[in-house]
């Protein structure tokens, strides 16, 4: 069967090479295209000169690159800075204005979707829907671990979608919610930093147990700290920390135990259940080996759900393994993205 799932690369994936000046923006687009992607995702605040202003020169260059490399813009990644004033947080109206600013930049540069962080308050999204409709940009709330679809958190947004009937707001899952194992590069880093094999085993076993039993999902709460606190408690963090302490764990062991709660395993059926409202996807990856397997995320199993659901959007590689390596190793994001694109191609086409 011919599946119409398209592949994109978030240029965030090349952050190491970009930071070190080994790749510029055009270089990132070129590498993404060489890896087989036809879509380009951008963090404007990372790579667009003169952010938040789009100059005519940049716009021309941007579309010129899209033509030259046979790519199209997919997703614009936005942030919502709430603390730019030193005497108060932004008002709702100011937050909506900031969101509208990003929607307009996204529209001007040809992006069809805009990523908003999982912490974006409902009222800010509601207030931005008219602008999104006018620019024909779909605001997508990122379903980033430890958040998940089919959860109390997602239900709140789903009610809003159904209540307003909007076609300009939906979800974009991040594959960090499909970790069946803790990324091996995180484990290796913990060991480098002095974690003990005994404690690492305790943490890994506890993670496997959560995968086996199923994670308790996170609730909707504009106070993310509170929601997160309840989430980790419900998933056994206090018990795990106690076990590490009993085993004589050091700071590196404790850090590894805490970090393990950043990864989640959700049933890929969640994708099928919500497909109507999924407009983009962050195909997060940490380490893709030479056999084209993402070592913590079972790509074939996850992509099978997208195929079954009839998804026609983009899967956008978002490589994030660099920060788990760069304390000790040279990072090769270009190769990691290439492998991940190939792994996705196989999973889509096989």
């Amino acid at each position: 069967m011919n599946y119409n799932i398209k592949r994109s690369v978030s240029l965030y994936s090349y952050q190491e090479e970009y930071y070190l000046g080994k790749l510029d923006l055009e270089g990132c687009i070129r590498e993404a295209a060489k890896a087989g992607a036809t879509g380009i995702e951008l963090l404007a605040e990372q790579m667009m000169p003169n952010f938040p202003y789009v100059t005519p020169e940049f716009k021309e260059q941007w579309f010129g690159w899209m033509d030259k490399y046979g790519t199209e813009p997919t997703c614009y990644d936005a942030f919502l800075e709430n603390k730019i004033y030193d005497n108060r947080t932004l008002t709702l109206r100011e937050q909506v204005r900031m969101m509208e600013r990003d929607i307009k930049i996204a529209g001007e540069l040809g992006f069809k979707t805009l990523r908003t962080l999982c912490s974006t308050p409902m009222d800010v999204i509601k207030g931005s829907l008219d602008c999104a409709a006018k620019e024909d940009v779909k605001i997508c709330i990122e379903v980033h671990s430890p958040f998940s679809l089919n959860s109390g958190w997602a239900d709140g947004y789903m009610d809003m979608i159904l209540g307003t009937g909007t076609k300009h707001f939906g979800f974009m899952p991040d594959f960090g919610i499909f970790c069946k194992k803790i990324p091996d590069v995180l484990t290796a880093k913990a060991l480098r930093q002095g974690a003990s094999p005994e404690c690492v085993k305790i943490v890994n076993d506890a993670f496997a147990n959560r995968v086996e039993k199923g994670f308790t999902k996170i609730k909707y709460d504009t106070n993310l700290g509170r929601a997160h606190g309840e989430y980790v408690k419900a998933n056994g963090m206090p018990e795990l920390m106690e076990a590490i302490e009993k085993a004589g764990g050091n700071a590196a062991d404790m850090n590894y135990a805490r970090a393990s709660f950043n990864y989640t395993w959700c049933d890929p059926q969640d994708i099928i259940d919500n497909i109507q409202y999924i407009y983009h996807t962050h195909a997060k990856c940490y380490n893709t080996n030479a056999e084209y397997e993402e070592t913590s995320i079972p790509l074939k199993e996850v992509i099978a759900a997208y195929k079954k659901a009839g998804y026609t959007g983009y899967l956008s590689t978002e490589y994030e393994g660099n920060s788990l390596l760069n304390d000790a190793f040279e990072v090769d994001s270009i190769e990691q993205v290439r492998r991940h694109q190939e792994a996705m191609r196989r999973a889509i086409e096989d």
Binding site: S119, P121, N223
Partner: peptide, 17 residues
């Protein structure tokens, strides 16, 4: 003080950075 979410310390940071 980049924003990633709405945290309990947001308001506190306004008063006491």
């Amino acid at each position: 003080l980049a924003q990633y979410g709405y945290m309990p310390w947001d308001e506190e940071w306004v008063k006491n950075p």
